[in-house]
Design a protein around this nucleic acid. Sequence first.
DNA 1: GTCTATATGCGGATAGAC
DNA 2: GTCTATCCGCATATAGAC
Lengths: 219, 219
Amino acid sequence: MATDTKQRILDAAERLFADHGFPATSMRDITNEADVNLAAVNYHFGSKEALLIAVIERTAAPINRDRLERLDALERDAGGGPVDVEALIRAFLAPMFDRWSLWGKSEPKILKLVGRIHAEVDQELRAKFIRQFDTVFARYAVAFQRSLPELQAGDVHWRMLFLVGSMAHTMTWGASIIATDRGARREPGEILEALVRFAADGMSAPAPQGVAVPAGGMR
Amino acid sequence: MATDTKQRILDAAERLFADHGFPATSMRDITNEADVNLAAVNYHFGSKEALLIAVIERTAAPINRDRLERLDALERDAGGGPVDVEALIRAFLAPMFDRWSLWGKSEPKILKLVGRIHAEVDQELRAKFIRQFDTVFARYAVAFQRSLPELQAGDVHWRMLFLVGSMAHTMTWGASIIATDRGARREPGEILEALVRFAADGMSAPAPQGVAVPAGGMR
DNA sequence: GTCTATATGCGGATAGAC
DNA sequence: GTCTATCCGCATATAGAC
């Protein structure tokens, strides 16, 4: 069963990379967990790094495709006009939370891993598969700019960085918070809505006053 | 020069841990960078892990002390009443950004590392020095709850997670964005204010409607 | 396709001379 | 306190039998 072996390796790698990170996970860890032979990884994928890329591809690619499709739909409906900021944020975030929901009770390792990708991986390696994310980021940046015309492009970028940070951190640590913190138990859908609310108000906050204040406020 | 050797090891470790992460950085990398002997690390610190803790202590401890002092001051001024949310957020964030400013033009490796700590480090290791952060988090959670009484405690926790995520991500990736993205160049103080604005509006967003809505809004 | 056995190198840590 | 030399285990990767 060749495909089964490949799948089991991918599943195990996903779990372990998510829990311990890429550098801290050895191929022996992976092959033990997957209950396959050590040599199987190199046979099927070529190298540990190639395995990581395969894992990422399997998980991140559909999410990013989904993000772009939702953005397309929103822009089509808006007919060239600005899209509602909250809808924009939801379109960006929902593809990740949807997959969390799909996993039901079990921990969303996929997302923890995707969260890690944003935060952990070394710059050079990151660049290899962040290409697709950069495309998504750029498309959304344009859309946000159109919906928030009073903001400078740089301000939009920074606020999007804040948004991505909230998302990545939530994906990485959200599950363990749910596990430990009694009163903070929430369904993925509720967390999504909480984050959408938080980010929508943050994104729509008034633009920073430049150096040239119209006199009155300062001093 | 014994103390000099210790300092150089700490400086080099800080740089390398920040850039490549803890597991991916070898002691040989560190001692080469610091231009000291390989054995010096174990002589002065005992182990690689103990070195990481020493690095963290040197950087994170003052930041967290600062956070608590600012919170004390705010609560003293408020005389038992609720503290302004924006002031609360600024008190939490400013200690990190202040240190960024202190570094002037050079990259704030310290902060990138602190950002990584929140995102990368393995749960068990993390627990060792996150104690102090947990204290800070808990104190601020109480203060936020008092300032946002319409929110449930769990909602406050989640929003604080979003806030921490924005901060950590900004610390980890902010410098490289400044370096690459022309129009996004900002002073640390400006980024702080941008993040305060973003998070203050996010934190103060309306509470999520529970299941029992007073009829009228939905449908 | 899957296995065992092994090549080869890097990892953290230490012994012991100076 | 600082150095060299070295232990020893684990890392990735591969050769070659089945």
